[in-house]
Design a binder for these strands. Structure first.
Lengths: 136, 136
DNA sequence: CCTTGACCTTCCAGTTACGGGAACCCTCAT
DNA sequence: ATGAGGGTTCCCGTAACTGGAAGGTCAAGG
């Protein structure tokens, strides 16, 4: 299988696959003409990584997950711990976004959005006046 | 005011302030010895940018917001539109995170997390078996 | 036989918003 | 003179790619 075919099947851009090779996530062989040649196991790894990335795992976490996947003697506790840590990161990000969203949506609501210059969004950013009806 | 003082007051690292100068967000003057000199207006801009960044606006959005702030003839509609676009981005990110969280928290719950190798997290990533009690 | 098109290759640069660290200058106090 | 605590520039590194240039490979068609 050449890179185009793998790209289609794993739904990853060829560029990304080359990058994954560069950082040692996968190690495809080469044909005499220099083309990469992928076996089923490499395709599976790429699909695995694609799913892990879609769940927000970093590349390094993906590397660890691949290693755990390969390891028939792994303890599921190790996988679970990694996933739980990642879950905590996701929750922290969501908290940050929630705070931004709360502030911003209030401001957007409070802003007339007409052709006049008065704007509670700018006032709040400038901190030269209190937000209309809500503490930051 | 030198950079250290501004850094303390605006609660931004000196490095960040130098970077903001480099990209033209602020244009402090210089003393004969080469030190940057900040006036109150520059401090205000930095505080403004600090708050905007905390709300998740990109640097380029901050640049636009600063320009709108400076423009006494702005229409609040322009500010509002920018904020609303950003709000949409925040919501999209939250949706992504929510999806990841839903999948992952189910998997973490389903994983025994003991010393045995069986792990629904890895199985799901490998897609070699259906997740235990939930569709992806 | 030559060309065209669709593949593939490598390499280089750019992205975002800084942080680390080296090497060096300025100023003041001891 | 020296040391502490400012400041300066410059360059590299981060994460995870993406875009683009320049060029090799291969099968089919005229």
């Amino acid at each position: 299988m050449n890179i185009g075919e793998v790209s289609k099947r794993a739904k990853l851009p060829a560029k990304t696959i080359r990058y994954y090779e560069e950082i040692g996530l996968i190690l495809p062989q080469r044909e005499p003409n220099g083309y990469r040649v992928f076996r089923a196991s490499e395709l599976h790894k790429l699909e695995f990584v694609g799913r892990a990335r879609a769940m927000g795992f970093s590349i390094e976490e993906c590397r660890t997950l691949l290693a755990l996947w390969d390891d028939r003697n792994r303890a599921s506790a190790d996988v679970r711990a990694l996933a739980a840590r990642h879950l905590a990161v996701i929750e922290a990000r969501m908290d940050d976004l929630r705070a931004m969203h709360a502030t911003l949506s209030d401001l957007v609501t409070a802003c007339a959005g007409d052709d006049r210059p008065d704007c509670p969004i700018l006032s709040t950013l400038a901190a030269d006046g209190a937000p209309p009806d809500r503490e930051l």
